[in-house]
């Protein structure tokens, strides 16, 4: 997991999808690169967008992987997507009220 996704966020109010616990729900507010990208920014952003992580998409963290609670299974609108926390850390989120 990238450290930048954790340092600033209040654990109760995560602002990155990468830091969200199981059961969290909210929506995508935007994208911001971290300093630990797995692949070039331009490519990672487009892959996530293509899987439906667009601004305004409804999110719910359904499941966490067995080791280090990684990867996560996220409901993105009508679709369930598995993604590593490291990659999900570039997605800015806001919790549902």
């Amino acid at each position: 997991m990238s450290s930048s996704s954790l340092t600033l966020a209040d654990p109760a109010e995560p602002d990155r999808l990468g830091a969200c616990p199981r059961g969290w729900s909210g929506w995508v507010t935007g994208y911001e690169a971290t300093d630990a990208l797995s692949i070039p920014w331009n490519e990672l952003e487009r892959r996530l967008l293509e899987m439906g992580f667009v601004e305004g998409a409804r999110l719910e963290v359904l499941q966490e992987g067995p080791i280090a609670r990684d990867p996560i299974a996220v409901r993105v609108d009508d679709l369930t997507v598995a993604v590593r926390r490291r990659d999900a850390a570039v997605i800015r989120v806001s919790a549902a009220e």
Binding site: S38, R47, V81
Partner: peptide, 11 residues
């Protein structure tokens, strides 16, 4: 290889 992102639909 840089690790590929694991990004997969769970149908």
């Amino acid at each position: 290889e840089a690790p590929e992102p694991f990004l997969m639909e769970l149908p």
